[in-house]
Write a protein that binds this DNA or RNA. Structure first.
Lengths: 292, 292
DNA sequence: CGGGTCTTTGATTAGGTTCAATAAGAGTGG
DNA sequence: CCACTCTTATTGAACCTAATCAAAGACCCG
C-alpha cells in the first residue's frame, strides 16, 4: 500500500496550489471555487449568520488516489476541507512504519496539527480521488476577525477534532479488539449515512492494514474479527464490501467489564451526585464512548 | 481513588467562580488576578507583541486536592490554564470506569473539549492543590479580535493539544508496555525540567492506576514495569518517588520492530523523495514519536 | 497472463491481564 | 500515640487475547 505503486506523487503541492493561473489542468473533475456559505455547509457549520452576499472565494484542488496532500515537516500554511473523497492522515515512526490517525472524509478538516509548529505534524494521503477546499490559515484568521460566528465555528471545529481524538485515545486504551472493530464499523456507517450514502452497505476505502493501524491492531486481527462478525451474522463481508446486519449489536459490543469495575461503579456513583451526565451530547459524530 | 474520600466536592463551580464579591475565602493561597502578559507567559506564548499596558485582568481560582473543576456534560463557558498544581482529565465510561486523558500541569490549557458541544466532554480533577487562571471563552474570542497575535497564539495552543493527542494515539496504537511507561517517564521528566523542578528526581502526582489508565495498561503492568526498570538500573523507584538514572535508554526504549517494518521501510523511502522530514519540530513538549 | 498487493485462515507464541495475597502508607478516631 | 481502616503498591501464578509466523487464495493492473 502506501503510495509505492502510484505513478505520480506530488510532493511539491504548495507550488502548484497557489498558482492561480495554471490550474486549468485541474478543471476536469470537481469544481474550482466555493464561497463562504458553501464552505460552512460542507463543514456542517451554521451558515445562517454569515453574510451570504460575501463573495470571498475558496479554491479547490483535486488529488488522485495515492497522492500525498502534505508531508510531515512540510511548511504549513493552509488547512484542507474535504469536499469529496476519502483520505488518511498518518504519522511515520523511525522505522518508516505508518500510524494511521484519521480517515478524513466529506466535511472533515485536516492540517490543523500544522498550526503549532508551522509545519505539518502528519502526512495526508488520498485514498480515492479527492476534491479538497483550500483554507489558507491567514484567510481563516482574517475571516474570524470579520465574522464572529465564523471564528466561533472554527474553534468549534477544532474542538470537535480534539474530542474525536479523545474518543480514539479512550478506545485504544480501554476496548477489546472486537469492540474497536465494531465501533469502527458503526462510526463509518453513521458517517456514510450523514453523507447520504447507504449506512447498511458500503465499501471500505482503506486496507485491513490501515484499519489495523488506526485501531491499534494487526491486519490479521481485523480480518479475523470481521470474519467472526460475519459468522455471528452481525455483518456480511466480502473483501472491501461491508453489509451492516445488526447495528445495535455492534454498537453495544464491548469488552467484558474489567471486573474491577463493579466496585468502582458504586463508589463513583456515590461521589458524583450532581453531574448532568445523562444529558445529551448532541451532534457528536465519530461517536464517543462515554455517551454511547 | 476518585474523590470518594474527599471531604468536600464542588460540583457547582460555576456558581462560585463568577461571584466576584465572595471570593475572599479563596485568597489564602495563590494570587487572584493575572494580566494578559502573565497569562501569555504561563502559556508559553510569545507575549512580546502584546500591549503590556493592557490592563485586562484574569481571575484565578484555587482548588484543593481531589476537587473537581468541571464534570462531563456541565455547561461550558470557560477554559482553564494551570498556573500551579497538577490535575487529571478523565472520561467516564458506561460502567463508571475512568479513562485518563491527560495530566495538565503548569502552562497547560484544558476545557477546550467543551467548545464544540457547549458542554465539557471530560472531567477535570485536581491531583494536588491547584491555582488555575480562568479564561472565559467569550473573553478569549474578544481578545483574539483585539490582538491578532493572541488569536494566533490560541489557535497554536489548541493545535499543540491536538498534536499531543495524536502522539498519545500513536503511542497507544503502536508501543509496547515498557515503551509507553518509558516515554511517560521521559515526558514527565522533561515537563518537570521546563517547570524548573529536577528532571532527575521527582514525585509522581498520580497513582499507578491513573498512569495505567492513561497509558492503556493495568496498574499491575505499570508497577511491574517500573520495578523492571529499577532492576535494570534505568530508574530508581520508591512508591511515588522516581529517580531517572538513564534518560537516554528510556528515550530509545521501543517495541522491537514489528518485523514487517523492514520491507515497508525500503518501500516508503523510495516513494518519499523530497520530504523535508528531517526538519526540526521545535518546541515540542510532551514529546512525540515521529520526531524522536 | 503474471507480479504485485491485499485478504483470509491456521498454528503457535508471548505480552499483558486477571486473580490473589501481602505489604506499605495515609488518614481517622479513640 | 497507637490501633484500625482504607487506599495504594508490589509480586506471583494462571490464563487469555492479540501478535507473530506462515501459507494459500483473491484481486488488480500493466
Amino acid at each position: 500500500m502506501l503510495s509505492t505503486h502510484m505513478p505520480e506523487i506530488r510532493t511539491d503541492s504548495s507550488a502548484a496550489l497557489h498558482s492561480s493561473s495554471l490550474e486549468a489542468g485541474w478543471q476536469r473533475q470537481g469544481k474550482l471555487w466555493s464561497n463562504l456559505k458553501e464552505l460552512c455547509d460542507v463543514l456542517r457549520i451554521p451558515s445562517a449568520a454569515i453574510h451570504t452576499d460575501e463573495e470571498l472565494l475558496f479554491q479547490h484542488v483535486q488529488f488522485k488516489t495515492g497522492q500525498r496532500i502534505h508531508t510531515i515537516g512540510q511548511p504549513f500554511d493552509t488547512l484542507y476541507i474535504v469536499h469529496s473523497g476519502f483520505l488518511k492522515t498518518v504519522l511515520i515512526d523511525e522505522f518508516g512504519n505508518e500510524q494511521v490517525l484519521s480517515f478524513p472524509m466529506k466535511g472533515d478538516l485536516f492540517g490543523v496539527d500544522g498550526i503549532h509548529t508551522k509545519r505539518y505534524a502528519s502526512e495526508a494521503v488520498a485514498l480515492s480521488n479527492c476534491d479538497l477546499i483550500l483554507l489558507p490559515f491567514k484567510k481563516l484568521t482574517a475571516l474570524g476577525r470579520a465574522h464572529v460566528e465564523f471564528e466561533h465555528a472554527m474553534y468549534s471545529v477544532m474542538s470537535r477534532e480534539l474530542v474525536r481524538e479523545q474518543a480514539m485515545v479512550s478506545m485504544l486504551g480501554a476496548l477489546s479488539a472486537e469492540a474497536r472493530v465494531a465501533r469502527f464499523l458503526v462510526n463509518l456507517s453513521e458517517r456514510y449515512a450523514e453523507m447520504g450514502y447507504s449506512s447498511k452497505l458500503f465499501n471500505l476505502r482503506m486496507t485491513r492494514h490501515e484499519i489495523g493501524s488506526y485501531l491499534g491492531l494487526t491486519l490479521e486481527t481485523v480480518s479475523r474479527t470481521l470474519s467472526a462478525f460475519n459468522e455471528i451474522g452481525l455483518i456480511t463481508v466480502d473483501q472491501r464490501s461491508i453489509g451492516i446486519k445488526d447495528a445495535e449489536a455492534l454498537k453495544t459490543l464491548r469488552r467484558l467489564p474489567p471486573s474491577s469495575s463493579r466496585a468502582k461503579q458504586v463508589a463513583s456513583k456515590k461521589a458524583r451526585p450532581a453531574a448532568p451526565q445523562s444529558g445529551e451530547q448532541p451532534d457528536s459524530d465519530w461517536g464517543e464512548f462515554a455517551t454511547a
